[in-house]
């Protein structure tokens, strides 16, 4: 479904992505783990066209997307739950959700999806008219996930959805990730520092270090890999 071939990306003169190649099949949950500053978020921003790839190819459902603008890429069915959630702070919860469906034209289905999500997250329904910025971290994360789902994405990119959240809420978030994947067949590309949790929900995983992919395997194998255990699982 998504294929990155030798993607390179730069911030000024600093190279953030060095020859990244990876592949995601439809229906999979793939996780990308690695330390702070390894280039995980940059990989997601490169896929979305926000931090353009300077060299290499990005193919989505067989079509090259690395030269498209972000809104065109979103239009093809890629949505992102970005790092730090990036809720529109002065828009209400409902308006944030509406913005998620910005490119959709099927008004009645949008309404249905919104009702479904408000049902799934009753706390958001309770706060529907509150400004997004007044929500707690966990509520914002739920809103960010819901907003991305409002686009009915074929591929959902998630950047550190567990960051800064209480353990109980982290568990809840990972259950939701599984649920989205199972119920809607949405393909998920999950970037995480919480390697333990991420590898437990994912089918396959990639390990990233200093802008390079250093390892890839089935998630179960990575969980038992000695090097991964030592570097990322704290065992």
């Amino acid at each position: 479904m998504l294929k990155l071939k030798n993607v390179q990306s730069f911030y000024g003169k600093i190279q953030a992505l060095k020859d990244i190649s990876l592949e995601i099949q439809a229906g999979e949950i793939i996780t990308l783990i690695g330390a702070n500053g390894a280039g995980k978020s940059t990989t997601l921003m490169a896929i979305c066209g926000v931090q353009p790839a300077r060299a290499g190819e990005i193919l989505f459902m067989g079509k090259a997307i690395h030269n498209l603008s972000p809104h065109a890429i979103v239009g093809m069915g890629i949505a992102q739950v970005p790092e730090g959630r990036r809720i529109f702070p002065y828009l209400s919860v409902l308006e944030n959700l509406e913005m998620g469906a910005f490119l959709r034209k099927d008004k009645s289905r949008i309404k249905q999806d919104m009702d479904y999500l408000l049902d799934l997250f009753p706390i958001l329904a309770e706060r529907r008219h509150q400004a997004g910025g007044t929500l707690s971290g966990g509520e914002q994360q739920m809103l960010a996930i819901s907003r991305a789902l409002m686009a009915r994405p074929k591929l959902l990119l998630m950047d550190e959805p567990s960051l800064g959240l209480a353990p109980l809420i982290v568990k809840q978030i990972f259950e939701i990730i599984k649920k989205i994947n199972m119920e809607n067949q949405t393909t998920i590309f999950l970037v995480e520092q919480n390697a333990n949790m991420a590898l437990r929900v994912a089918h396959r995983g990639y390990v990233m270090e200093n802008g390079r992919i250093t390892l890839t395997d089935l998630a179960a194998n990575l969980l038992s890999n000695e090097a991964v255990k030592k570097a990322y699982l704290g065992l």
């Binding site: 926000v50 970005p82 913005m99």
Partner: peptide
């Protein structure tokens, strides 16, 4: 209006606006 909401969203966070498909 949707355009008005998109204007507010863009004013608050341009990158996120692009990520929901708004042509900034």
């Amino acid at each position: 209006t949707t355009i008005g909401k998109a204007m507010r969203a863009t004013a608050q966070d341009k990158i996120m606006a692009a990520l929901v498909g708004i042509d900034v």
